[in-house]
Design a protein around this nucleic acid. Structure first.
Length: 808
DNA sequence: AGCACGCCGACT
DNA sequence: GTCGGCGTGCTC
């Protein structure tokens, strides 16, 4: 019988980042288990918070007065033993709070909402009637959150509270609800319905039809909605039926169905070529033998990696185990989902960002109950509550979206490795352009490398033509389109074939600049240039959301020549339309796809050949498969090449390889055009040659010279404060705590102000640490996180980002 | 996070 | 003299 429990409470601060001990009242003794959510009183007053039970019946060190658990929120644990352990590891590795780790692993509905209600105590006569009316109107309770923004009301309430005239109640409410639907069940026998029919008036058609319908059900319970559709009768008719005792209404719990009515016709496995068969064989061996081996499946675009995944999943299932397949959000398209569903049917659960909170919760429950054995999802799906995992797949493993860029700053690849080791399951990392880290590990034998060099359709990779834009611009003036590209576009248009054009906007966006004095409007809070949004005719800050009107005159020199800079897709489309007046062009960028579902809608439209050219940003590069596309153009390949980021070459190479793979997926041969101002750059040249391996070798040399990953590991320590001096001082102190304490090969860079030094009125300074092997570092950094609050004032924030994707 | 405690300025 | 500002410490 549990008498004591250890609870991690939902108060995300360093000081409370440890278990608190609670007594278990008798009536809860039988219920409470580790991994369950509970409600506990915390702090003075009547405050109640949600928490997670991490241990039962282990007496804590605390010897003060214990409080009682207020309630248990779950019937069975939401976190099993594996996930509890994983959360501990995750928090430790990413320097995050334990509570943050728990919530990251669970659907958001399991985070209870707390409301604070202000209630008047009985003797109101003492309270000024005017005040009472102003604040409470005729209610006796008031949601504090609604008043929070009104400083006057807030201070009045606080005064009343001090005087004991009002109290604040805390209510924790669980938002996790199973969806309920109404059902109907016939209550009479076939013959009895015949009897009822005699008692119904001849012209009561609806009722007669209802009797017919109920008869046809033969006692079966059906959802009311379905009954209405099948019978064509109204809800009111069924209500009348219930009153007459012909049927019974009931409630049933259902899963919200995120797949919609998507027909998933079963698809047969494709025939494997020899390379694929070899890869499948090796992976399946590991699955059978339960070895937690990591494979790097390196296959050119179109080499049939997905089929390898599906075969490997099949084997895991055949062994009675489950499988997890991670894909980047952007390639979690209906195409890939229907392919997995087609093979494994209802055993598949899909987790993607398009799900509502309720749908996500339901998919999570299906997985947890063991009804779904295959999970396909983006980054956070790596925490799917699967039991007995037999295989983990991570497609496009080089994608930077696998790294979460707020706390906990985990990389899904590391979590996948942890879980694979826990379950003794193989992990398959798939990519055409692996991350240098993974490719290097395959080179040392840490990962087992599997290669797919041939495309399944036997077609060669499309030829890539590199066009020097310096010459084009010299000859024809400022333009986004070279003659070779225009000629090919015209040719495709004449043949009725489709083209895709990509505008590389990495590290680059359109902004407004004064042509007289060079003034660029900046965000008053964040010190970064405001981006131009033509749809709302405004300037917006991408970081804090600040918005202002486009100025007519320059605020700096009062000049009138304030113009737009940078090439947006909008401008690129307009220019293209002047060259090709008859072409039907679809523009795809953040602006045209902001509304939910627009992304798919535009792609479907293009897929149906309702347009000739798809012009968009990076988002068009991934995972699209349009057989009709025979020309792919990259308008500005080098944007992003010169960013002060050691990974910019790698990302550019990946991007070019990705888009090149979009051409000629089907029968027609494809052609790729890359426009660039740096035609001789090695990234461009090796992308043109489709030569990842040489790129790998060359880039590794540069990384070695610069002491960058994968030769060195990196950690970024960021400190922020509303006062710039303080931010700098904090990071200076952090540096002092590290200097002399670390390995002799470890390099400490900074502190330096971050590229975006001010965000939301806070100043940021950072230190980057590069190290090869430094056993003392982790403990040092943990100590810095723990000490930061005590050492500095409350406004100080210290964040640690292990293995950052960007240093900017 | 949210609350109490405690120590300094402008009001009855 | 007190009311109330926000810096600091603590929450089983």
């Amino acid at each position: 019988m549990a008498e004591l429990v250890q609870v991690i409470v939902d108060v995300p601060t360093m000081q409370t980042n440890r278990p608190y001990t609670y007594r278990v009242p008798e009536h809860l003794e039988r219920q409470v288990q580790p991994g369950m959510r509970v409600m506990v009183p915390f702090g003075r007053g009547s405050r109640e918070v949600q928490g997670f039970v991490v241990a039962v019946d282990q007496p804590g060190e605390f010897d003060g007065d214990l409080k009682d658990l207020a309630g248990v929120m779950d019937l069975s644990p939401v976190l099993n033993d594996e996930l509890l352990k994983l959360a501990g590891w995750l928090a430790d590795q990413t320097y995050a709070f334990k509570i943050t780790a728990f919530y990251t692993m669970l659907p958001s509905l399991l985070k209870a909402q707390t409301t604070r209600l202000v209630r008047l105590v009985d003797e109101v006569d003492e309270v000024d009637e005017q005040t009472r009316l102003a604040l409470f109107a005729d209610q006796d309770e008031l949601d504090l959150a609604k008043v929070q923004t009104d400083p006057l009301a807030l201070s009045q309430l606080m005064r009343l509270r001090r005087a004991g005239k009002v109290v604040i109640d805390y209510r924790v409410h669980d938002r996790a609800r199973a969806k309920q639907i109404t059902t109907i069940t016939p209550t009479l026998s076939f013959d009895d319905y015949e009897g009822e029919r005699l008692g119904v008036l001849k012209n009561a058609h609806a009722q007669r039809n209802l009797l017919d319908y109920l008869q046809s059900l033969a006692g079966k319970t059906v959802p009311l909605k379905q009954a209405q559709e099948e019978s064509g009768l109204s809800a009111a008719t069924f209500t009348t039926g219930a009153k007459r005792g012909w049927l019974k209404k009931g409630q049933a719990e259902v899963y919200r169905d995120p797949s919609g009515a998507l027909p998933t016709s079963p698809t047969a496995p494709l025939t494997l070529n020899q390379e694929q068969a070899q890869a499948v064989k090796r992976i399946n061996q590991a699955t059978d033998q339960r070895t937690a081996e990591t494979f790097l499946l390196q296959g050119v675009t179109g080499s049939g990696k997905t089929e390898v995944y599906l075969r490997a999943i099949e084997r895991a299932l055949a062994n009675g185990r489950s499988a997890l397949m991670l894909v980047p959000e952007i390639s979690l398209t209906p195409q890939i989902v229907s392919r997995v569903r087609g093979r494994f049917g209802k055993q598949v659960a899909v987790l993607h960002s398009g799900l509502s909170n309720g749908e996500r919760y339901d998919e999570w429950r299906r997985i947890k109950r063991g009804e779904a054995k295959v999970v396909v999802g983006a980054r956070s799906a790596v925490f799917a509550p699967l039991d007995n995992v037999g295989l983990i797949i991570m497609d496009e493993e080089h994608e930077s979206s696998y790294k979460q860029d707020d706390a906990p700053r985990y990389h899904a690849r590391d979590v996948a490795k942890w879980r694979a080791a826990y379950h003794h399951a193989p992990l398959v990392l798939g990519s055409a352009t692996p991350s240098l880290e993974s490719r290097a590990r395959a080179a040392t034998g840490l990962y087992h490398r599997l290669t797919l060099l041939h495309r399944v359709n036997q077609r060669p990779l499309p030829p890539i033509q590199v066009v020097d834009m310096k010459r084009e611009v010299q000859a024809r003036g400022e333009t986004n389109y070279s003659l070779p590209l225009l000629n090919l576009l015209t040719d495709r248009l004449n043949k009725g074939q489709q083209s895709i054009l990509m505008l590389n906007r990495r590290g680059f966006s359109s902004f407004v600049m004064c042509r007289d004095c060079g003034y660029v409007p900046k965000c008053p809070n964040c010190d970064i240039s405001l981006t131009l949004h033509m749809d709302s005719r405004s300037l917006k800050c991408h970081y804090c959301g600040h918005e202002e009107r486009i100025p007519n005159t320059c605020p700096n020199c009062q000049g009138h020549r304030i113009r737009y800079y940078g090439t947006g897709t909008e401008k690129a489309v307009a220019e293209l339309q002047t060259y090709l007046p008859t072409a039907r062009i679809i523009r795809m960028d953040v602006d045209t796809t902001r509304r939910k579902g627009m992304h798919e809608k535009l792609l479907t439209k293009f897929g149906n050949h309702e347009a000739d050219i798809l012009l968009g940003t990076q988002m068009i590069a991934k995972g699209l498969d349009f057989p009709g596309v025979t020309l792919v153009g990259v308008l500005n390949a080098d944007t992003g090449l010169d960013l002060p980021d050691f990974r910019s070459s790698e990302r550019t190479f990946d991007l070019l390889a990705q888009v090149a793979g979009r051409a000629g997926r089907a029968d027609e041969a494809g052609q790729v055009v890359i426009q660039t101002f740096n035609p001789d750059n090695y990234v461009i040249q090796l992308a043109r040659a489709h030569d990842y391996e040489r790129f790998f070798v060359q880039e590794m040399n540069l990384r070695k010279l610069g002491a960058y990953p994968p030769y060195y590991y990196t950690v970024r320590v960021m400190g922020s404060h509303p006062d710039e001096q303080m931010a700098a001082r904090v990071m200076q102190a952090v540096r002092q705590e590290l200097v002399g304490q670390l390995d002799s090969q470890t390099i400490i860079l900074g502190p330096t102000p971050r590229a975006i030094a001010r965000l939301k009125n806070r100043y940021y300074y950072q230190i980057v640490i590069k190290y090869r092997h430094d056993p003392a570092l982790h403990a040092r950094l943990t100590a810095i996180m723990e000490g930061a609050q005590q050492q500095f004032d409350r406004e100080t924030q210290v964040m640690i980002d292990p293995d950052p994707q960007y240093f900017l």
